[in-house]
Every structure is written in structure tokens, then in C-alpha cells.
């Protein structure tokens, strides 16, 4: 895992798979995404790639009531590619949870 976050809601295997998914998306689309556990206002990092050199506003997408996606550079892609990525992630989440 990229981080050390401890979650009751998501097990280590699921978090590893999120890491893998973020890596795949990075390779395919050259963008960084990371996943967060949503806890009211708090969005705690659980997996993925958060590049400190990307000084851009974060795009936040609520995938489920307790799971979110954040990316700084997803909006730079053409809309259809953005949609492809989101669909890919949503399908993955749907299968796993």
C-alpha cells in the first residue's frame, strides 16, 4: 500500500486493489487519482497516487457515501476519457463492494 491508513470499512486487499487501479490509470492516461474514505467533512486518503508537484484544485467525486475519488488532473482530459475512467472505477467498485 502507498499509505499507512487504517480503515474499518475497507480491508487491506481492497485498498491494494485500489492502488493497482490507480497505477493502471496512471499508465494508461498519465493522470493521478487517489481514493479517500469519506467521513463527514473529512476525506482521508486510503490509496492511489497523490502527486505533490501538481498544484491544482482537487476534483472530488463521491463514488459511494463512504468512498471518494480525488484528482487534480482528471479535468485536463477530454470529457469522453474522463467518463471512461469514472466508469472503469465505478464498475470496479460495484464488483468489489
Amino acid at each position: 500500500m502507498n499509505g499507512t491508513y487504517i480503515s474499518d470499512q475497507f480491508d487491506a486487499d481492497f485498498i491494494r486493489q485500489l492502488d493497482f487501479l490507480a497505477e493502471q490509470i496512471k499508465q494508461q492516461y498519465k493522470i493521478n487519482i487517489w481514493f479517500v474514505e469519506i467521513l463527514n467533512r473529512r476525506w482521508s486518503y486510503i490509496a492511489g497516487i497523490c502527486d505533490p508537484d501538481q498544484l491544482l484544485p482537487p476534483l472530488r467525486i463521491e463514488l459511494k457515501s463512504n468512498l471518494g475519488l480525488v484528482s487534480n488532473d482528471l479535468p485536463d482530459l477530454p470529457p469522453e476519457q474522463q467518463q471512461d475512467i469514472i466508469n472503469q472505477i465505478v464498475n470496479f467498485i460495484h464488483q468489489k463492494l
Binding site: 499509505g3 499507512t4 491508513y5 487517489w34 481514493f35 479517500v36 467533512r41 473529512r42 476525506w43 482521508s44 486518503y45 497523490c50 505533490p52 508537484d53 498544484l55 482537487p58 472530488r60 480525488v70
Partner: peptide, 23 residues
Amino acid sequence: AGYRCGRTGDHIMKLLKCGKEGH
């Protein structure tokens, strides 16, 4: 901002230690 977009825990620590969080 940080804790509302995943800059938390060890991630915020890394950003602080490398001086990037200041930006």
C-alpha cells in the same frame, strides 16, 4: 483544504517534510 481532499495522515506528513505543502 488538506483534510477534505486526502492530504491527511502520512500524506500530509510527506508533503510537509518535502516543503510542498507550503505551496
